[in-house]
Every structure is written in structure tokens, then in C-alpha cells.
């Protein structure tokens, strides 16, 4: 079963303001994006589980126009506050890379 890291062209995180981090997954091929979307694996519940945040705090949007998924989460600590580990929020994407996507076509 392919993982996100095997099939996506972009998987990244970044601040969306000082209090949120936003995580994006993009596909170059709209058809592949549509198949990933159809699996239903990527959703707010997945991000809530991966990052240990409440599901209602996850703002999740599939974005057909860009063949992309976006999830925005409240940061553990506001950017630059005591104990923050990632002021730019640029290295919070890794847990997503390992997520299995059960594409029907084994060649996918």
C-alpha cells in the first residue's frame, strides 16, 4: 500500500499566523488526487489522531482546484513562546508522510 511520501509531490507544513500551523499535501496528477480523495483516508479525524489535537480544532479542506489537501491546527505553543520548537512551523509534516493510502489499483 503506498504511503503519502510515495505518491505526493508536496507534503509540507508552515505557520498560518503565529497561532496555527497548516499542513499541505499536493498531487501533480488530478486523477491521482481524486483517487486519494475517494479513499477518504485524509480527513480531520486523521489529523486529530496524528497530532493529538481535538477533531473540532482541525480545519480540514480538500482543494480540488490545486489537487491538494490542507489541514490547519492550533500550534502546541504560539510561535516563539517559551518552549516552542519550530518558530516557522516548517517541520511538522513528517507524521503525514507515513500514512498509508489504500488505492485500489496496486500499480498506483
Amino acid at each position: 500500500m503506498p504511503r503519502i511520501r510515495d505518491i505526493a509531490q508536496v507534503c509540507k507544513s508552515k505557520n498560518a499566523g503565529p497561532f496555527h500551523v497548516t499542513i499541505d499535501v499536493l498531487f501533480e496528477d488530478p486523477a491521482l488526487y481524486a483517487r486519494v480523495k475517494a479513499t477518504g483516508v485524509l480527513n480531520a479525524a486523521l489529523f486529530a489522531r496524528l497530532y493529538g489535537v481535538a477533531e473540532e480544532d482541525v480545519q480540514f479542506s480538500p482543494y480540488d482546484a490545486a489537487s491538494a489537501f490542507k489541514a490547519t491546527l492550533p500550534r502546541l505553543v504560539p510561535a516563539g513562546d517559551v518552549g516552542d520548537t519550530d518558530v516557522y512551523g516548517a517541520q511538522q509534516h513528517a507524521p503525514l508522510l507515513e500514512v498509508d493510502i489504500p488505492l485500489n489499483d496496486p500499480a498506483g
Partner: peptide
């Protein structure tokens, strides 16, 4: 490219839409 522009279209925004 459409991918490079799509990638940037998501940049630093809470919602892509």
C-alpha cells in the same frame, strides 16, 4: 508550473478557499 503555482496557492493560509 501548475504544481508550483498550486503549491504556493496554499502558502501560509488557514483555508485554501
Amino acid at each position: 508550473t501548475p504544481l508550483s503555482v498550486s503549491n504556493f496557492a496554499l502558502h501560509e493560509n488557514a483555508s485554501p478557499i
